Simulated scan of single mutants.
Amino acid sequence: MTDAPGSEGAAPSDLPNSRRQAGGVRRAQSASDASSGPPSAMRNARSEFETQVAHARAEFEEANERIKQRTGRDLIVAIAIGLAIGAVVIVSLIFFKWIFLVFAIAATSLGVFEFVRALRASGRRVDLVPQLLAGVVLMLSGYFVELWLHWVLTLVVVVVLIVWRLLAQMLARDGRAYGAVMSDVLITSLVVLYVPFLGSLATILLSQDGGEWWALAFIIVTVAADTGAYATGLTIGRHPMAPRISPKKTWEGFGGALLAALIAGVLLAIYMLGLPWWTGLIIGAAILGTATIGDLGESMIKRDLGIKDMSSWLPGHGGVLDRLDSILPSATAALALYYLLTPLAVS
C-alpha cells in the first residue's frame, strides 16, 4: 500500500523553521560572545598589567637588595625618612622659625645622646645630663642673644663641663689613670663643641634677616652633594677616596657631589638668595668642602670607636648624628658666607 501523498513531505516543510531556529541560536550565541567580549578583554588586560607590575616590583626589590648589600642601607626606607625630614625642615623654615629652632634643638640633643652613649660604650667617661643641658643653652643663645655673648656663653659652658667631669672623677675615687682622666676632659670638650656649638651657628644664621633662606639653602646644597656622591659612587665609583677612614667613598662620588653642589648653589643663589650666579659656585664649593670634612671626620670617630653607625634610630640612615655629620660643619661656612655675600644681594 502506497503512502498518502505528502506523508514524506512533512520534514521538508519544516526545514524553513529549522533554519530560522538555527539562525536564531547563532545570533544569540554571537550576541552572547559580543556581550562577553569586552569583559574578557578587560580581564586579560588587567591580568597582563598585574603581571607587569609584579615583574617591575621584583626587579626593583632585586636592585634595592643589591644596593643594600653594597652600601648597607635600605634605599626605600632611607628615601621615605629623608623626604619626611625634608618636609619638616622646609615647612618650618618657610613658615615658622620657632618650629625649626625646636627641631634643631631636638636633633642636636639626640646627636649628643648618641655620641655620649657610643663614647661610654668604648670606656670613656662623659656626663650625659650636663652635656644635654649645655647643648640646649648653646642652641637657644645662638638664636636669642648677641653674637659676642654667645661666644662668652660657649666658653663658660666648656669650662663648667670640664670642672663637672673633674669633680665627678674626684668623687669616684676609683684610681683611674691620669691619662684616661685627661682623655675624658678633652672628649667632654669635643662633644659640646662638635654637636651643639656647631648647631648653634645654624641658629645664629636663622636669627638674621632672611637667615631662614640661607639656612634652607645650605641644607639643600648639603643634601644635593650627598645625593650626588651616593648616586655617582654607587654607579661608577671605582677609586677609593679615603680607604683607611671610609672605604666606600670614591673620587667618582666626590666628582658627582661637586657637580650637584655647584648646580644647586647657582640655582639657589639666583632664585632663592637673590645673588649673582657666580656666588652660587662659591656657595656650592664651600659647603661641599665643609660637608666632606664633616663626613670624613665622623667616619674617623666611628672607626676609632669601632662602630658602623651612631645608632639605628633612622632606618636606612643610621643615627641622627650620622645625618648631621655634614650639616653641622657646613653651618660654619654658611654663616660666614652670609656675612660676606649678603651685601651683593640684588634689592
Rank of each mutant, 00 (worst) to 15 (best):
A134I: 06
T203W: 07
W277T: 09
F197C: 01
L166C: 07
G210F: 12
V156A: 10
H55A: 14
V163T: 06
I90V: 12
Y143A: 05
A56L: 14
V160S: 06
D127G: 08
L93G: 01
W151K: 02
A225T: 13
R57G: 12
L93C: 01
L190M: 03
P276S: 12
A11G: 02
Y271I: 06
L314F: 02
T2L: 08
S312M: 09
L153H: 06
W213S: 15
W148G: 00
A336K: 01
I76A: 08
S92Q: 10
F100Q: 11
V320L: 10
R165F: 04
L138Q: 04
G265K: 07
T292F: 08
F113A: 04
A224T: 03
M272E: 07
A217Y: 11
K249V: 09
A104Q: 08
A34E: 14
A257Y: 13
G280I: 14
Y230T: 02
T51D: 12
T222H: 05
L259E: 11
Q69E: 15
V88R: 10
I105M: 14
S330V: 01
G289H: 15
I282D: 09
T203K: 09
G37W: 15
H239D: 06
R238I: 11
E212Q: 15
V89I: 15
L132K: 08
R125P: 03
A345H: 13
G199C: 04
A334G: 05
A54G: 14
L335T: 09
I76F: 12
V157Y: 05
G6A: 05
T279N: 12
A87G: 03
R70D: 07
I105W: 13
P276E: 12
A172I: 02
G289D: 11
A4F: 01
I327S: 02
Q169G: 15
T203N: 05
Q21A: 15
K302P: 02
Y339T: 03
T342I: 07
L119V: 07
